[in-house]
């Protein structure tokens, strides 16, 4: 049996166009997460506007993707891996859009942070940023290369970010108790860590979607470990 590349060519061209939009969105999201989190570490107040502007474009692409997904479902009735791809694109776009919103929150926090009294360096924050950005980047790479193994590693990494957020909470509270003048800055960092944790959660969702796309299997909400036990 040979598959014929000319079969359903029109449909596959539309599917390719959909993927291109998603990749454009993914590139913008990765970029604003990087810019916003660096701005926190560098106490740089200047990036918020740029990040917000990119987020506007991200929102627009999400709407374009939603429209295309509805159109493809209605007109092409995809099945099997095509169906999984269309449905997953919609879910990934939704996750990316929310990650974009968290990046905006982080950039705004960086702007406010510049007006507060600096805190001693918290290495957990740098670590949290690095791991979260790595999860996002690995989840997107796994999506592009249809790599369920990497996607599963991303899912397992999420616990580290949760632990770091708990550490951050303790450290930040300690700084507040030590010196009340640090409270404003400390609160901003707490907010940043919460947003980073949510980004890691959404990167995990994205990785779970990759496993569904590749294997047709749902691993959300511990479904995989539940079925294995």
């Amino acid at each position: 049996m040979n598959t014929d590349p000319t079969k359903r060519r029109h449909f596959h061209e539309e599917l390719d166009a959909l993927q291109e939009k998603l990749m454009e969105m993914a590139g913008l999201v990765e970029e604003i997460v990087a810019v916003a989190s660096s701005a926190v570490l560098e106490r740089d107040p200047s990036v918020a506007d740029v990040v917000k502007q990119s987020d506007g474009r991200i929102d627009d692409i999400e709407v374009e993707i939603d429209d295309l997904v509805i159109e493809l479902l209605a007109l092409q009735q995809p099945v099997a891996s095509d169906l999984r791809q269309v449905v997953t694109t919609s879910q990934v776009a939704n996750d990316l859009e929310r990650i974009g919103d968290h990046a905006v929150n982080i950039a705004k926090a960086a702007r406010r942070l510049a007006d507060t009294q600096p805190l001693p360096e918290i290495k957990e924050l740098g670590e949290m940023i690095e791991i979260t950005r790595g999860m996002l980047s690995d989840a997107l790479a796994a999506y592009v290369s249809r790599d369920a193994k990497t996607a599963r590693i991303v899912c397992m990494t999420d616990d580290k970010v949760d632990d770091l957020r708990r550490s951050m909470f303790r450290i930040v509270i300690t700084h507040m108790l030590e010196d009340p003048k640090r409270i404003s800055g400390a609160l901003e960092l707490l907010l940043v860590s919460q947003n980073l944790e949510r980004i890691a959660d959404l990167a995990t969702n994205l990785a779970e979607d990759v496993v569904f796309l590749v294997e047709g299997r749902t691993i959300k909400h511990g479904a995989e470990s539940a079925s294995a036990s």
Binding site: M1, N2, T3, D4, K7, R8, F11, P78, V79, A80, S81, D82
Partner: peptide, 12 residues
């Protein structure tokens, strides 16, 4: 794989 190719319209 052959089922996948058929139901997605890649051959047949």
């Amino acid at each position: 794989e052959r089922t996948e190719a058929y139901v997605t319209g890649r051959f047949g």
